[in-house]
Write a protein that binds this DNA or RNA. Structure first.
Lengths: 103, 103
DNA sequence: CAATGGCATCAGTGAAAACTGATGTGAAAG
DNA sequence: CTTTCACATCAGTTTTCACTGATGCCATTG
């Protein structure tokens, strides 16, 4: 469905660096140091982006000593995937039935 | 898959007004006048957003006299839906197998 | 207890981009 | 032919937001 929560998710994932983070975390749970090494971005910058991702419910943290692991919450991504799939399906039937408003 | 084309699609759909346009067009093919009435946005503003959507391959135009119909291209949305679905699936197995990098 | 390392917070800066008003174009209506 | 309407283009303004440096906190290490 097309919820305001999903709209916020899209906004959050629109940033290239955040999308890269998500892509990395999908394959492997990592901590900030790893993400710094993988992306080449500065620690402060990454920390700010991870904050945004956490507040949006895309990732969750798991403290481990003085490290902090970041792992994805698949539900958020699944919600987005379903939404775009539904939109595509609706659009297909709209086009196949040539449903248009008169002007 | 996680392509640069999909990254561009996400960026384009991150704007609230553009997402609203896409949501409207999914159910019904419309022209600019209708979208002005539905969204309350100014004609110039909508025209600029529709330009972005067209250049990104999200919509296509169909001239009709002095009107211009806008219709969705479902392939773009399906590509996004598949990408997020795959990311979610990958993230699920990563979490289930507790795959994490040592630090 | 000091020193170090991992990470978060904050305020400031710069760049990207959304929005607007003015204007142009082409098609239909009169 | 003139007017009107739908829409596009463009330049200017404003706003949003990514990025940075400075700083502080907490946990480990020596």
């Amino acid at each position: 469905m097309m919820t305001s929560a999903n709209a916020e998710l899209i906004r959050v994932l629109a940033d290239p660096l955040r999308l890269r983070i998500v892509s990395l975390l999908a394959h492997e749970t990592l901590c900030t140091t790893h993400l710094v090494a993988e992306t080449g971005a500065r620690q402060t910058n990454l920390s700010n982006h991870l904050r945004v991702l956490r507040e949006a419910g895309v990732v969750e943290t798991e403290p481990c000593g003085r490290f902090t692991y970041y792992k994805l919450r698949p539900a958020a991504l699944e919600s987005l995937g379903a939404m775009f799939g539904e939109l595509a399906a609706t659009a297909r039937t709209t086009i196949e039935t040539d449903r248009k408003r008169a002007c």
